[in-house]
């Protein structure tokens, strides 16, 4: 993972083409959700040792945000999907 990412649009690309935004597991709360929900969304992270979802931005490629499912202990990558696709799936 830390060396190569398979972008669903561009194929196998080196890590340095990407910018990492961070945790992709949290959905943005609705405007009227509680203060706590907003605080947790902006500031709290599950920070798992193991499987995690992370936003990687293919800045030097297709400019798409990708959701990379990977292992923080082994760096194994399980899946890479387009973030819009991921968000739509999550919304369903």
């Amino acid at each position: 993972m830390a060396s190569l990412i398979t972008c669903p649009h561009c194929g196998l690309r080196p890590k340095e083409e990407f910018a990492i935004r961070g945790d992709a597991s949290r959905g943005r709360p609705e405007p009227m959700d509680s203060d706590e929900a907003w605080h947790d969304y902006v500031y709290v992270r599950a920070n798992p040792r193991g499987r995690t979802l992370e936003h990687w931005h293919h800045v030097a490629g297709c400019r798409r945000f990708l959701v990379v499912e990977r292992d923080t202990a082994t760096h194994e990558v399980y899946s890479v999907v387009d973030a819009a696709e991921f968000a739509r799936r999550a919304a369903q």
Binding site: R21, F65, A84
Partner: peptide, 18 residues
């Protein structure tokens, strides 16, 4: 310029893809 573009892409693609 770069961060704002990335921010807009983030919002469009991950927060409001519809």
């Amino acid at each position: 310029a770069g961060p704002v573009m990335a921010h807009m892409e983030y919002c469009a693609q991950t927060l409001w893809p519809d």
